[in-house]
Every structure is written in structure tokens, then in C-alpha cells.
Computed example of a mutant assay.
Amino acid sequence: MLVLLPPSETKSPGGTGPPLRLDTLSFPELTPTRERLVETLVRLSEDLPASLEALGLSPRQSEEVERNGALWNSPTLAALDRYSGVLYDALDVGSLSGEERRRADERLAVVSALFGVLRGADPVPAYRLSAGSRLPEVGSLRRLWRPELSRVLESVPGPVVDLRSGAYAALAALPDPVEVRVVTEDGNGSRKTVGHHNKTHKGRLARALALAEREPESPAEVAEIAHGAGLRVEQPGRRSLTLVVS
């Protein structure tokens, strides 16, 4: 099983690991594209106005451009520690025991505009690049990543639980994912799709799947694990799940 998480715009700063080495990352077939994008961001950082425009940043966010300029030299953190925000707060990998963290590193993966896809323990520096960005000499990241990232994810054995947001889902097509929709239900049984706050609930589901002693082999077993963690999950279709929250 692989659980695909979206990244976050915010990243935890600093790190304790050595500088970036692309040959240490999972899915080594993505190395040429990763190197091209890192080199592009480093060169682009030399032109602050062009960087701000390409990355959709304001002048007050110039430190993000400085981070990109130091991609080859900055300290690294494991991917699950690097990304932050509400989903990662709910996932709370810092509270996991050693064996639980090993399972999380193996089962959870982050889809990244810069690195394609990362397993939980992959060491990466802080950076800024969004799926919707267009870079000089590269253009659309969707067009760049989609063919090869789709091939890589198609080769993953077992079910793939897709918790990506829309922009990151566009970076790779999946042949038969387990798709998860988050809805709220009021006292009258009326439902509506949850927006930004779905990330918290997806983080809780990802944590439940990481903590499970056995890996699920079907959507029904994903739902069973979620139920065991106190989540309300329904299976309206063969490969679809609905996470219902109050």
C-alpha cells in the first residue's frame, strides 16, 4: 500500500541531515527531472523579481527565493518532518514510536512539485515550488511530471490511497486509486464536501493507515482500519471511500 499525501506550502526550517543528494531519494528513475528542476530554481533565484513572479510570491516572501538558491547546500529533514500545516499536524509523526515511524515512512508518500514523489524518510531541504507554477525553460509542471510520474506510480504494488489535492492530483494519473472524499453531515443528514479543512481529516486517516499493524489490501480493508481508529468511513463505490465528519 502507498498513501499519497499533498505537500504543504509551508515547510519546517533547518534540518539535521547532510545537504541534498538526489541519489539517496526513493524512485531514482525521477532523478533527471529532479536535477533539472533544482538547477532551474537555483539559477532563477539569482533574479529576485523573476523568481517572485514565477513562484507567485510577494516581495515580503523573498526569503523563500533565498531557500531555493541554497537547495544544494541546505541541511535536510525527512520528508514527513519537512512538510507542515494542518494535514501534517493531524498526522503528528513526532509522536510515533520507532516501529510506527518505520511503517509511516514506508507507507506514506508526498507528491511534490520539485521532487515528484517522496517516501516519508527521504531527506530534502526546505524549498518553495507549487504544482501550478510555470518556470522559465520548463513551463508547466503538470506537463513535465505527468508522463513519467504516472508511470512510476502505476508500478507501485498494492492499493494506492489518493489523498492528494487537485493541483497535485494533476501531476500524475493513477490507474485504479482508492479515492477519498471528505464530507460534513448536519443533524438532518444533509451533506456537503469539506474544503480546506479536509486536510485535517485526511491527516487523521493517513495516521490510522500508518499505525495499522497490517497493510490493507482493498478499499474495504482501508475502511475497516479507519473504523478501528474511530473514523466514520463509507464505501459508496468499488474504489471510492467517503469520510464523514460532523
Rank of each mutant, 00 (worst) to 15 (best):
E39R: 14
T40C: 05
T40D: 06
T40Y: 07
V42M: 06
L44A: 09
L44Y: 10
L44G: 03
S45C: 08
S45A: 15
S45V: 04
E46M: 12
E46C: 12
D47V: 11
D47G: 08
L48Q: 09
L48C: 11
P49D: 08
P49C: 11
L52M: 06
L52T: 02
E53I: 04
E53R: 15
E53G: 09
A54W: 06
A54P: 10
L55C: 08
L55P: 02
L57F: 13
S58W: 08
P59A: 13
Q61Y: 05
Q61C: 07
E63A: 15
E66F: 07
R67I: 04
R67P: 00
N68C: 10
N68Y: 01
G69D: 06
G69A: 06
G69Q: 09
A70S: 13
A70T: 11
L71C: 10
L71G: 07
W72G: 12
W72K: 13
W72S: 12
N73S: 13
T76F: 07
T76H: 11
L80F: 13
L80D: 12
L80W: 03
L80P: 12
L80R: 14
D81W: 09
D81Q: 15
Y83C: 08
Y83G: 10
S84K: 04
G85K: 08
V86N: 03
V86S: 06
L87I: 09
D89N: 13
A90N: 03
A90F: 08
A90V: 11
A90M: 11
L91P: 05
L91C: 08
G94N: 05
G94R: 09
G94M: 10
G94W: 09
G94S: 04
S95L: 04
L96G: 03
L96H: 06
S97L: 07
S97T: 15
G98W: 04
G98C: 03
E99C: 00
E99I: 00
E100G: 06
E100N: 01
R101G: 05
R101N: 04
R101S: 07
R102K: 14
R102A: 15
R102L: 13
D105V: 09
E106P: 05
E106I: 01
R107S: 02
R107W: 01
A109T: 01
A109D: 03
V110A: 11
V110C: 10
L114H: 03
L114Q: 03
L114E: 01
L114T: 05
F115R: 01
F115H: 05
G116A: 00
G116Y: 00
V117L: 05
V117N: 01
V117D: 02
L118P: 00
L118A: 01
L118H: 00
R119F: 04
G120E: 06
G120H: 03
A121N: 12
D122V: 00
D122T: 07
P123L: 07
P125H: 02
A126D: 06
A126Q: 02
A126I: 02
Y127W: 03
Y127E: 04
R128Q: 12
R128F: 03
L129C: 07
A131F: 15
A131Y: 13
G132E: 13
G132L: 09
R134S: 15
L135G: 06
P136I: 11
E137R: 13
V138W: 12
V138G: 09
G139L: 05
